[in-house]
Amino acid sequence: MRRNWLSYPYLFWVLLFILLPLLLVLYYSITSITGEGIRFTLEHFQRFMEPIYLRVLFRSVKLAFISTVLCLLLGYPMAMILAGKNFKKKNVMVFLFVVPMWMNFLLRTYAWMTLLEKNGLINTFLARLGLSPLNILYTEKAVVLGMVYNFLPFMVLPIYSVLSKIDKSLIEAAEDLGANGITVFRKVIFPLSLPGVASGITMVFMPAVTTFVISRLLGGGQFTLIGNLIEQQFLVAGDWNFGSAISMVMMAVILLSIGIMSRYERENEGGGLW
């Protein structure tokens, strides 16, 4: 308690760089500048309720949801293999999974453009094999691919870390009580890994729902996501008030998803003893 003053710089930081900007965004979202000056209004939120914008929101949530599900389906088995006791090259694999994250995000996504191009590497290869070309660049599929590629490590790592911490004797206890491999997974391993799954889902869904780089590069600008919409309002249209309102909506979506997920994470809090 007597070291309270140590926290003051952080408190100052929080006020200046987190709380203040948030309040500013909130302020912009509920005000509008007219000839008579500034007035409070909900017109920006009303405007967002127009079908064209709701469709963008729906598309963002849908693509992020699909990517999250795909990441989970791909990432969970991967995490299980990594956490398995028979896997010797474990550290190398975990390392390789992390390495791409050190590379520039833009560059990684850009690389997919050249791979997926009409005359890109993948289509050249398919042509050699006499197969029909794959034309998914500038489609929703390419956007989902980009999201899965970029965010998969965020799904694998939390699940891996939870799985590798599960006490092996719990698995033996389940076997001892008559559970075969599938039942052990269903009744013990999977329920115990839920906190990892929950944080994996949160960590994939959040950046996926807010991304604007992936949709711009791989979607060719045809698939406006909520991130692109915000970017446009601030950088192109110069409508800070509407942009702020959209940001507030997005924050609400994210808060909602975190709220749902944290229910699963909290469940295991008391289990810290094990």
Binding site: D167, L170, W274
Partner: peptide, 9 residues
């Protein structure tokens, strides 16, 4: 089991 290995969930 030695440390009981009760299922915490």
């Amino acid at each position: 089991f030695q440390k009981y290995a009760l299922f915490p969930h």
